[in-house]
Design a protein around this nucleic acid. Structure first.
Lengths: 111, 111
DNA sequence: AACGTACTACGAAGGTTATCGTACAAAAGC
DNA sequence: GCTTTTGTACGATAACCTTCGTAGTACGTT
């Protein structure tokens, strides 16, 4: 009825759990998102070319947000996502960088 | 029939996948196991006091083994588990230490 | 051989996840 | 106001995960 400002729930820094972060990072699609954001900074959901449908994309972004890995804000019709690097680095020093590096190492692996 | 030597399947180093490792680490019980093994080295399944049944314990150890996080060998009636530190460090440098450190940081967090 | 210890295999229940299609909503621009 | 762009909500499905109890196997000890 009353047009709600579109807001999104984010966990406080103190609510971010290691298990939830690791689980959020344990999916190939979500890892790809994190890898992209680590390089490109704040991006819209559609800026990343994922091999899943739009509704599935929404799902994965929500998992990342609810785990505290990314922050999302509306900007016009777009929804911009960025890594919560400060929060994650404060809570779990080195984790994000290590995982991103591990992702690259795996991608470079001779299959 | 013919008494099989009890063997356990482990992925080769080259078969270890980051997603599987992160998933294995995203469970509180399994994190507790990894934390224990990081300090205590090779241990039997029953050396760690987990708040789950024996069959559930078996399940979690299997997930860790199949992901390539631990190695398990039979030693008499006991089954000894240890971290595959060399393999993990070679594939994903720093990941294990970072996760263990993050686990400790979270445990020390003022709730 | 009998017993105890340590762990496994199986099957099941209950919950969660990943995926999708369809229909909808909010904002920007025409 | 209409259209396009961008993303959401909902419902469904199929797969998976965690958990357990029960029954069983392998090994060492007596």
């Amino acid at each position: 009825m009353t047009p709600q400002p579109r807001t999104l729930d984010h966990p406080d820094r103190s609510e971010i759990r290691l298990e939830a972060v690791l689980h959020a990072l344990s999916d190939p699609v979500r890892l790809q998102v994190v890898r992209f954001l680590a390089d490109n900074g704040e991006s819209s959901c559609s800026a990343i070319d994922l091999a899943v449908s739009k509704s599935t994309t929404t799902h994965h972004f929500r998992v990342l947000r609810e785990a505290g890995v990314i922050r999302q804000v509306y900007r016009g019709t777009a929804k911009m996502s960025s890594l919560r690097r400060e929060d994650l680095d404060a809570l779990f020093p080195g984790l994000l960088d290590t995982v991103v590096h591990a992702y690259d190492a795996q991608a470079a692996r001779p299959s």
